[in-house]
Amino acid sequence: MTAVLVAGVDEAGRGPLAGPVAVAAVILDPARPVAGLGDSKALSAQRRERLAPLIQSQALAWHLEWVWPDEIDRLNILHATMAGMSRALRALSPSPGAALIDGNRLPRDLPCPAEALVKGDAREPAIMAASILAKVARDDYMRELEHTHPGYGFALHKGYPTPEHLDALRRLGPCDVHRRSFAPVRVLLSPSLVD
């Protein structure tokens, strides 16, 4: 009897005011375990960056899916993230027979049976691996935005609503990578705020 392939799914970047959400799905290879996995938020940036290529080279399958600000604004952050999770699972080859998804909700329209695991990124290795890939990819992308959108500090705050980011947003106004449906950005776009 063949073992069911189980994918772990997690995301990075639901809370920021700018940039995409990165969603990763990973099927780990039981014959090639990746040592040192953990919750990406608890690992140093250097550790995550060392683990990401190991995960990619040793996993049976992995896929990174981007959920862009226009989709987030159109669907809302929850539904856009869920759609990204479903797409990430569908893109895996080989296809998983089951999925473990970090959090307390499951996307609709999944290609396989799934279970939501609260704090799964601290409990389940496949979710830990997905969490690391998503976080590393998103952080890299936000650092690149520093060059195309100077002055916002994306390399430092990664789009999160820090005092520095909110100050830059007030000074420079929203740019094309900001999520227009998020309150601090939406308020600045309101025509009633003209000086």
Rank of each mutant, 00 (worst) to 15 (best):
Glu115Gly: 10
Leu100Gly: 11
Ile77Met: 08
Leu92Ala: 07
Arg87Asp: 08
Asp109Lys: 12
Glu115Arg: 15
Leu172Ser: 08
Thr162His: 04
Arg87Lys: 13
Gly173Gln: 08
Pro125Ser: 04
Val26Phe: 07
Lys135Thr: 03
Arg170Pro: 01
Ala91Asn: 09
Asp29Gly: 09
Arg105Lys: 14
Ala130Ser: 09
Gly159Leu: 06
Glu146Ala: 15
Leu156Glu: 05
Gly159Ala: 06
Ser40Glu: 03
Ser40Cys: 10
Asp29Asn: 15
Glu144Phe: 00
Arg90Lys: 13
Ser190Ala: 15
Ile55Phe: 06
Glu146Arg: 03
Leu60Gln: 14
Leu166Asn: 07
Pro184Tyr: 02
Arg171Gln: 13
His165Gly: 04
Ser95Gln: 15
Glu164Cys: 04
Ala35Gln: 15
Pro69Leu: 07
Leu54Ile: 03
Leu51Pro: 02
Pro191Thr: 05
Ala42Asp: 12
Val194Thr: 10
Ser192Leu: 10
Thr148Leu: 11
Leu166Met: 09
Ser95Val: 04
Arg143Ala: 15
Leu75Phe: 01
Leu188Gln: 12
Ala24Val: 06
Gly159Lys: 03
Val187Ile: 04
Glu71Phe: 00
Val9Met: 08
Trp62His: 15
Thr2Met: 08
Ser131Asp: 07
Val67Ser: 10
Ala18Gly: 11
Lys135Gly: 02
Pro163Ile: 06
Thr148Arg: 14
Pro33Val: 02
Ser57Phe: 00
Leu75Arg: 15
Arg32Pro: 09
Asp140Met: 05
Leu188Glu: 12
Ala88Lys: 06
Val118Gly: 11
Glu124Thr: 14
Val194Tyr: 00
Val9Glu: 00
Val177His: 10
Pro20Leu: 13
Gly36Leu: 10
Gly84Leu: 07
Asp109Thr: 10
Ala137Arg: 10
Asp195Ala: 14
Leu5Val: 00
Pro174Glu: 08
His149Gly: 06
Gly173Trp: 00
Arg180Ile: 00
Pro16Ser: 12
Val9Leu: 13
Lys41Cys: 11
Ser192Asn: 05
Gln58Gly: 02
Asp195Ile: 02
Gly153Pro: 07
Met142Ile: 01
Ser86Ile: 05
Leu51Lys: 01
Val4Asn: 11
Arg179Glu: 10
Ser181Met: 03
Glu11Met: 12
Pro191Tyr: 03
Pro96Leu: 04
Leu169Ala: 09
Leu110Val: 14
Ile101Thr: 08
Ser93Met: 11
Val9Lys: 03
Gly97Thr: 07
Arg87Ile: 07
Ala42Thr: 14
Asp102Pro: 01
Lys41Leu: 05
Glu11Asn: 11
Ala134Trp: 03
Lys158Leu: 05
Met85Tyr: 02
Ala134Lys: 05
Val23Met: 07
Ala3Tyr: 00
His149Pro: 03
Val21Pro: 02
Pro69Asn: 10
Lys119Val: 00
Pro174Met: 04
Trp66His: 08
Pro20His: 13
Ala129Glu: 06
Leu64Asn: 09
Ile27Ala: 10
Asp73Val: 02
Gly38Phe: 01
Arg90Trp: 00
Leu78Ser: 12
Ile132Phe: 06
Ala155Met: 02
Gln46Phe: 04
Arg170Asp: 15
Leu117Glu: 13
Leu37Arg: 01
Ala45Pro: 14
Glu65Cys: 13
Val26Ile: 08
His147Trp: 01
Asp121Arg: 01
Ile132Asn: 08
Val21Phe: 02
Ala134Phe: 04
Pro20Asn: 14
Gly15Ser: 12
Arg105Ile: 11
